[in-house]
Design a protein around this nucleic acid. Structure first.
Lengths: 252, 252
DNA sequence: CGGCGCGTTGATTACTGTCAAACGGTGTGG
DNA sequence: CCACACCGTTTGACAGTAATCAACGCGCCG
């Protein structure tokens, strides 16, 4: 873990990502926005694979992902690993730690990432004084939960091809919503082994499944860059319906 | 759906279940408890398999499960079904609907159940005026999310035997925490097909997996009654660690 | 040059789904 | 009271999916 030499620009950039991310679901008032901007935060950069938050630890800060990706990783007795979520810039990676106290999983960096840590007491004060902001933050954890349910459905009842396609659709849609899609592609700095940990598949099978998907022509995935050639067709193949991401503004 | 002829006793009983359930994680103040008890609610009974909340519907009430079980059910294009959670008495079954507005899944009754519906505006007022109570309610949705993550881990990386064992451990632990375990067993009024929809398995495979588990002697499961003969051994087999259920009181 | 991580391929094994059928209990109609 | 249909459980045979084991190629870096 390296202390962030990154100055105010990373901070401002990340804050903008958070606010944009929250405002996907409901507009914030100027006062709410100002309070968020005033939050004290400590920016830290992480290399690929580093633990951002470690399982079982009592935390006293919330991590806000500024750049890069992060995954929630659960480790089993037998050494296997299962990821349960992927976070993108603007996401709180452990907002649930604010109330859960002890986390049952780690959060690891995917690619180079930077995270702003905000003390729990500041978050707490914010939620106590600004009930609407508290609801929007609550909502963001509810959407995380909705994404978890979608993962359960994919794991339980979809084919490997559908599941991998669904993951791409999910990431594409979420990244697109916060303006992080470049043309029709995005960098996704993870190995096929790590994709396997997201989908609950072996590395070998991820490789073969990916080949099948590439053969459809709906997407390309090379050198850790994913290109969605035909989103509609991919979404149909994967049974992806973005409704669960709640990407519409509405008073909450 | 039948209107509840059930009088005040069902209501009081269910309210007690809610408060006991919330107080598993943090004590409530007398004022908070009183406010909860004053909530207007409409009690409705459901038969097995009935929809309690229907997918895609805009709701204006939250359902609080008073008696019986309920499952969150997602339906796929091909007619398959995957359940993503099981609720027990004292749980809000769609508290997330308060902020999500549109639900991406249905909630179906498992066994005969009764549900108290509370208008969103009352819930909203409660959370605005009582920030601590809001946090405890938020926490309850975070624990639901933690349970979802555990399901993902089971689906992705555990054997069918472990997964089924984990489900039994989860239910046993949660029911025990609210005093709903009778001796060392509990009624679980679902068919093996429905268990399959929880575990992402076919009915036939549920049957065979269950036989394997019965053969260990750690549990019995007959006539929809589950008996846990050796919880420690079952938990070890299933890799079950109750930490994620947050069953300890702490200021939140 | 040699080691290493990652992607890829082939062969084999294990797990799980599907199809089909039988069994037992329950409720209904004759 | 019995015949029958229905539902859930159970069993067997078979097919399909995914894990495992092993090996190879390629690019990168010391």
């Amino acid at each position: 873990m390296q202390k962030g030499s990154s100055g105010a620009s990373t901070r401002d950039h990340g804050l903008a990502a958070l606010i944009r991310s929250l405002e996907l679901h409901d507009a914030l008032g100027p006062e709410e926005r100002r309070r968020l901007e005033e939050m004290p935060m400590r920016v830290v950069r992480f290399a690929h694979g580093q633990d951002i938050v470690r399982e079982g630890r009592k935390t006293n800060e919330c991590g806000l992902l500024l750049e890069g990706f992060a995954g929630r990783a659960h480790f089993l007795e037998n050494g296997k690993r299962q990821m349960t979520a992927v976070h993108i810039p603007g996401d709180f990676i452990d907002l649930h730690g604010l109330l859960l106290k002890i986390l049952d999983h780690s959060v690891v960096g995917l690619g180079q990432s930077s995270v702003a840590f905000v003390p729990h007491e500041d978050m707490r004060r914010l939620t106590e004084n600004y009930p609407h902001l508290a609801r929007v933050l609550w909502l963001s954890t509810l959407i995380d939960a909705a994404i978890s349910r979608a993962w359960i459905v994919c794991l339980g009842r979809r084919s490997a091809e559908q599941h991998l396609g669904h993951l791409v659709c999910e990431l594409y849609t979420r990244l697109h919503a916060v303006g992080l899609i470049d043309g029709d592609s995005f960098a996704f700095p993870v190995s096929q082994t790590e994709v396997g940990d997201m989908l609950g598949l072996s590395t070998v099978h991820v490789n073969r499944t990916l080949q099948n998907l590439r053969a459809t022509g709906f997407l390309a995935w090379d050198n850790q860059v994913v290109t969605v050639r035909d989103f509609g067709a991919l979404a149909k193949l994967a049974g992806f319906d973005p409704i669960y991401l709640n990407l519409f503004r509405e008073p909450r």
